[in-house]
Design a binder for these strands. Structure first.
Lengths: 342, 342
DNA sequence: TGAGGGAAGTGAATCGTTTCATTCCCTGAC
DNA sequence: GTCAGGGAATGAAACGATTCACTTCCCTCA
């Protein structure tokens, strides 16, 4: 059915080895032979069979990327960064979504292993490291993304989330807030735990109070739910600032607590609050939609694309056997906007 | 280096054929042989080589999906729908981003062809059909997504965008607006052209006026730019309603034109307007962030996940040689929220 | 004149899985 | 006791690109 190198070789009157050379090392073949082979390829509509190529090569030209949540624009950006850097090296990226579940993560890693991927980039679900070790033991280069590996055996690219949490909290303190709530969860997600820890440290040092409001996931919907919970309280019992573990939560919170423009507090405000007047709000990640919120959201920016592209760089370094920069850590950056009075 | 069926066979004291049978048709093998082989697989850490498998099978278990813009949550949902349906059949989905560019689309289609993908789902860049025909001629099942194929030769899943445009415009008319602006572009994108056409028809029939405000892309940033343009005009010259070609544009518009809550028109409003009071706004797609906007955005909902899963269904039908439902068309649905006074 | 060498091209072996025609062995029927 | 039938297992062939040791051919230079 399909046209193979054999057919092309016959058509062009050369051997299969020569066709392969034309494809991979044209400089080793005389110009007119190249032309003749190329003409045959064109005429027959030959398309290389990647499976055969990979079988011979022993590995594929694809990088597997496992993220916690594809719906989060932060990860979309990471993926874009990885993809464009990979493309520069003739590699492609396959994106998989673990939804923070062990079994989904394992399933995708199994798939990647069967595919003998070039390497794997993974934002690991908490404590699934044994599975990753097996991966590496099978000779598949692995880089942890958005997680600093304590274990020295994995390369990693991360952002200092403790520092990010500290920055966010200090900003809220600097605008005079003292009754601060952290909204996020589950805390088994390392990013959440670190941001909380950073905030706690900063607030503790300033004699502020930090309240923890847990969520089941880092989504807009959960943010809305948390917001409704805050509104249900007596106004004097509400925090005067909220630090959300990511922007999705923050946007949900914003939607549910903020007073609508033009509406009087009495009318349909129904206990809604002014932002940042009554409650200042800051998120994390600085996704595109953060600045698009009508009350533009303050946030802690992570260099998402850079994280993705750097992860690919590390993979290539491991690949080339160079001593890789084992742990790259980026610093987060405060972005002040309307939701904290900027 | 790597463990192959050969090694497993030797270890378990059986032939390679038997190992393969254990892997693929365990019911054909006696229970204790299955157990023995499984034990060897476990002990040796054998992992199937997918490339060899594909080479033999002639095709892969991967579906290629080419979308116009991965950053648009609408397409993320389509991808999720496709992925979950594909997973039910043991297939995976590789998502590629054409960014509405011919060459990027072609590059990815080439890649998919080399990979002998199981099938291709594509939201085609305008008029790149010849490339798709070649794909199909090479025996790769192809389904057009979010585009109704005029050419009967492709199966397709689409939403009636003309109808969607009509619905949006009629809604704006029904709340008394007559000076309506359509913001979107480039019109070479079929979705944009259709939505515009639908709006035009409805507004023409009602003696309203439709103004076209072009954009270079369907992004938040372009929406903001369009919004600034509207604000720069004399208030009497502004439209009283805006229909944005998608939600990203609408969110950008909202951000740039809406009066901030609590601020007087004079103070920092700087010519900003009330939404929906001065300008009603409706978007398209009904992405998650639409309802999260502080003035919740009215929109025209498309069943994104359903589009994705249906596309995979069509692919499977073509695959099985069944006469496929060649053109599936879903109807869009109006979702009224605060930005049009809901 | 002939050795040496380089450029061009050859084709068999290889990667690892699946398939399928074939063999082997056992049971049950006549 | 023999034979048909069937369950279980076998192993060689096939998939298609790449590689590499080897052959040809031709040119140069001593």
């Amino acid at each position: 059915m399909a046209i193979s190198v054999r057919d092309v070789a016959d058509d062009a009157g050369v051997s299969v080895g020569t066709v392969s050379n034309v494809l991979n090392r044209p400089e080793k073949v005389s110009p007119d032979t190249v032309a003749r082979v190329l003409a045959s390829i064109e005429r027959l509509g030959f398309v290389r069979n990647d499976a055969a190529r990979q079988l011979r090569a022993g590995r594929s030209r694809t990088i597997g990327l496992v993220v916690l949540d594809v719906r989060n624009p932060f990860f979309t950006e990471v993926a874009r960064g990885a993809e464009s850097r990979a493309a520069e090296h003739g590699l492609s990226v396959l994106v998989a979504n673990s939804d923070d579940k062990h079994d989904r993560e394992s399933t995708y890693l199994d798939l990647f292993e069967e595919q003998r991927v070039f390497g794997v980039l993974v934002t690991p679900v908490s404590e699934n490291l044994p599975r990753l070790m097996r991966m590496r033991d099978h000779g598949i280069p692995t880089v942890l993304v958005d997680r600093e590996s304590h274990d020295a055996s994995f390369a990693s690219v991360a952002v200092d989330d403790v520092e990010g949490g500290r920055i966010a909290a200090e900003h809220l303190l600097s605008i005079g807030r003292r009754r601060i709530a952290f909204v996020g969860g589950p805390v088994t997600i390392r990013q959440v735990a670190d941001r909380l820890a950073g905030a706690q440290a900063a607030i503790g040092a300033a004699d502020g109070r930090l309240e923890f409001i847990g969520t089941d996931a880092l989504t807009v919907e959960e943010g809305r739910r948390a917001g409704r919970g805050i509104l249900a309280r007596d106004p004097r019992d509400r925090p005067d600032a909220v630090f959300a573990a990511n922007d999705l939560l923050a946007l949900g919170l914003l939607q549910s607590i903020v007073m609508l423009p033009g509406s009087s507090t009495a009318a349909d405000g129904r206990g809604r609050v002014r932002v940042p007047g009554d409650i200042a709000l800051i998120g994390y990640d600085d996704i595109d939609f953060a600045s698009s919120a009508v009350i533009p959201l303050s946030s802690v920016r992570q260099p998402a694309e850079l994280i993705g592209s750097t992860a690919v760089d590390l993979l290539l370094e491991i690949e080339r056997g160079e001593r890789p920069r084992e742990h790259v850590v980026f610093q987060p950056e405060l972005v002040v906007r309307g939701s904290t009075g900027g």
